[in-house]
Design a protein around this nucleic acid. Structure first.
Lengths: 210, 210
DNA sequence: GTCTATACGAGGATAGAC
DNA sequence: GTCTATCCTCGTATAGAC
């Protein structure tokens, strides 16, 4: 029964499956960034991918699971970014680079945003082990950098690291980026720089104290 | 036909009407703060107020109009706060006080939050003249303060005032406040102070450079 | 594992009596 | 202008053929 070909065939099928699921998650990612979880409909997802709605449910059991998978992929991407930063960079430089990537992704319309508190997904996310694991690793990495930066004086040591961690995470859904983009007065790169600067230096200090 | 009593009766009826509408807006305000526009249902609003859902529509034509009225009342409240600040305060102090009020209101669960971009309400808000008028006045007031603060060196003059304006507005829906509150390690007052400080001084500088 | 067709519930809005 | 009862659309999820 052509057992010798079975593995190859199986692998090919799996690749097709993976490819399809990647396409689905791409669509979900885009729609989550555009409209958020509550306003994203399964019909839209299916239409964007170009498949029937029922087929979605062969890959993902529910809308919540779809969002959770998308968010997990995003966190994995963020972890890759953190891992790819130059070792010689200071902790503060790494944190800035991550914020830069975050805002940029947001501006590209590729940052899925889930209502911070409330909504049904938050519980779904917490029950989704892969998501929680990625989140834990990211938090640990950032926490390490923050502590180092505080120890070296790059970051204020009398501000709780917790606050800094949340502040950095919050850049992913910062409406300031949307407002500035809508205004049209700044390029994406300028917007990113402005937000990075405001996040770390605030609004009182000078940009480059000579 | 008791024409002499008509005005009084009319006034009394109007007061009753106003009272009822205030109660409705209180409920809407609370629900918008808890769940946001999309997840707030008219059934919930009616149940919270303690009236039938159909009665809501005698006062407000649609869910959008309800949200717009609630947001307008919030802006009016904000304008009152700005007007009540001590004249002797510096522009920067006034801006900080407003952010403080904003975050505090948010923490109290009384800050209605509408998804920054997207969603049907944004267009509804822009077509609602009272809202736009209040918003314009608030923006103008803040813009004046920002310019003064930049001129006196209290705020950085090489950061566009637009960015500062949006940054201040964004504190009304800052998820950092929710995260910190959920963590339980800080009191509401501490959270407010932390956010005000982060907003204006950022994360690099010291709190009180001696 | 993809499709068409449909069940089912939720929620915005209205009808019509009082 | 308040109520009860209802309409109707939309959106999640499933059934069942191929």
């Amino acid at each position: 029964m052509m057992t010798s070909e079975a593995p190859k065939k199986h692998s090919f099928k799996q690749q097709q499956l993976l490819f399809r699921e990647t396409a689905i998650l791409d669509a979900v990612n885009q729609l989550l960034a555009q409209k958020g979880f509550d306003l994203m409909t399964m019909d839209e997802v299916a239409a964007t991918v170009g498949i029937a709605k029922a087929s979605l449910y062969k890959h993902f059991a529910s809308k919540e699971e779809l969002a959770a998978a998308s968010m997990t992929r995003l966190l994995q991407h963020a972890l890759e970014v953190t891992a790819s930063l130059p070792k010689e960079d200071s902790p503060l430089a790494k944190l800035k680079a991550l914020v830069q990537w975050t805002v940029n992704t947001h501006l590209q319309g590729a940052m899925p945003l889930l209502p911070s508190t409330r909504s049904t997904i938050q519980t779904a996310l917490q029950n989704y082990a892969p998501y929680m694991e990625c989140l834990g690793r990211l938090i640990e990495q950032l926490g390490t950098w923050i502590q180092s930066a505080q120890a070296s004086g790059e970051l204020s040591s009398d501000l709780p690291g917790e606050v800094m961690l949340y502040t950095i995470f919050a850049r992913s859904c910062d409406p300031v980026a949307d407002f500035l983009k809508q205004g049209g007065a700044f390029s994406d790169q300028e917007i990113t720089e402005l937000i990075v600067r405001t996040t770390f230096q605030g609004m009182t200090g000078q940009s480059r104290p000579a």
